[in-house]
Write a protein that binds this DNA or RNA. Structure first.
Length: 418
DNA sequence: TCTGGGGTCCTAGGACCC
DNA sequence: TCTGGGGTCCTAGGACCC
């Protein structure tokens, strides 16, 4: 294989920029990006954390994931706006369309605000990839109103590392010969796939920079980081052979829905109702994907932030809301010891196609269930999620649909590896 | 402490079978 | 059984990403 040229394109402070652009378009005179501001959840419903910060907010030391209280302590004048996920989906798609339509057929969406682009076959058209990257960057800024960073290199890992260098509105390269000067001096935490636990283990062994890791003995790193050690050692040395793959229909491995409940749940019935609300969206997405699932799992987080989960393999794969809900409730009853519950989750996985005539082996009731689910799905598709819901939710204090406010339409998913 | 939600992958331990 | 070893499956938990 010849030398490839890979771009990584990353929207700067994506949620915040996108909300800022929308506000400007609605006649607002203040550009949120120019002042300390964040996109954050609502503390009233116990969702009060920082999702994205503006660059001026970053200067106050505000970090993604911290509570709004902490952020406000650092900057009392901080402007806080709520997230708007359907807006973000639109921006994400418009962003990807420009890349795909104008620059290369080989584009991979990596997350809601990141794309990889294989520029290799475009070289003859543009000659200079750096100039082409500036063209892309400027076109997105001029047409969509938000800035991006573009990283350029010979593989995805290096391109991604390059796009993180200096922000916003920049093009950077980390070609292999630039690794020692541009990547090795960076703190170890900056390396892709080195999170809190890994950096702690590395730092305790005096590995402080990416260069330190690159020069360490890979066998020694494997002793305490197992296979993950070899992965990050390769990344520190700029080694990555993964390909940019067009993502039509990514292979989904699991579908889940979880939520922090605005109040502590202390009784079984309410818990079961929350599980139903979570299962409704999980099962509908499962059916829309055309799958049946063989594994159901339930997770709990208590008011004291203790987490645990319980799962079960089932004999025949299912996609019915009621069937999944029933198993989720059984799992919950086996798992719950009576502590006040802060957070609940339902997840299904181990999929197989749902189009087979296996229906005949189900009991009559089950066939009816599937017909009912299909009907409800299509009503909700036409008239909205709230158009039909179970009477058990009335006056229960539990919303009929909760968790991932995602407008859906196929949420772009990344794998944890490149 | 006003501490989110969506994912993927890996590992360890126990059950079970030969 | 105070027995050994290896393979596979299952479950729970933890690590990482955005």
């Amino acid at each position: 294989m010849g030398k490839r040229i890979i771009f990584h394109i990353d929207a700067n402070s994506a949620y915040l920029s996108w909300s800022a652009v929308a506000k400007l378009q609605h006649g607002d005179s203040l550009d949120l990006r120019t002042v300390p501001s964040i996109v954050g959840g609502n503390p009233e419903t116990r969702h009060g954390i920082v999702l994205t910060k503006s660059i001026p907010a970053k200067k106050y030391g505000i970090q993604t994931g911290e509570t709004l209280r902490e952020a406000l302590n650092k900057c009392p004048d901080l402007i806080i706006v709520p997230p708007d996920y359907s807006l973000y989906m639109q921006c994400s798609i418009a962003f990807g369309d420009i890349l795909l339509r104008e620059f290369s057929p080989l584009v991979e969406q990596y997350s809601i605000d990141e794309y990889f682009l294989d520029f290799t076959s475009m070289e003859r058209l543009y000659v200079d990839p750096i100039k082409a990257a500036h063209t892309i960057k400027d076109k997105i800024r001029d047409e969509l109103g938000f800035t991006v960073n573009i990283g350029i290199s010979t593989n995805k890992l290096l391109a991604k590392m390059a796009s993180e260098l200096q922000k916003p509105d920049k093009v950077h390269t980390i070609f292999p010969e630039e690794i020692p000067t541009k990547m090795w001096p960076l703190p170890i935490e900056e390396l892709f796939m080195v999170g809190r636990a890994t950096s702690k283990k590395l730092r305790s062994r005096n590995i402080k920079t990416i260069g330190d890791l690159a020069h360490a003995d890979p066998a020694w790193v494997q002793l305490f980081l197992k296979s993950h050690g070899l992965l990050v050692w390769n990344y520190a040395n700029g080694q990555d052979i993964s390909l940019v793959r067009e993502n039509r229909r990514p292979i989904i491995k699991g579908i889940g829905n979880s939520t922090t409940i605005p109040f502590d749940v202390e009784d079984r019935n309410t818990a079961h109702l929350v599980l139903l609300s979570l299962t409704e969206t999980v099962a509908a997405r499962l059916r829309q994907a055309g799958y049946c699932a063989r594994l159901v799992s339930v997770s709990i987080k208590t008011s004291e932030f203790y987490s645990c989960s319980h799962q079960r393999k089932i004999a025949s794969a299912i996609d019915c809301t009621n069937a999944i809900h029933q198993i989720a409730c059984e799992l919950f009853d086996e798992l719950w010891k009576g502590e006040p519950i802060r957070h609940l989750g339902v997840r299904v996985s181990e999929f197989c196609q749902n189009d087979f005539q296996q229906l005949s082996i189900f009991e009559k009731d089950y066939v009816k269930e599937r017909v009912l689910d299909k009907t409800v799905d299509s009503i909700r598709a036409r008239f909205g999620n709230g158009s039909v819901f179970r009477s058990s939710f009335i006056n229960s204090g539990v919303r009929f649909s909760c968790g991932g406010t995602m407008n859906d339409e196929e949420y772009p998913m990344m794998s944890s590896l490149l």
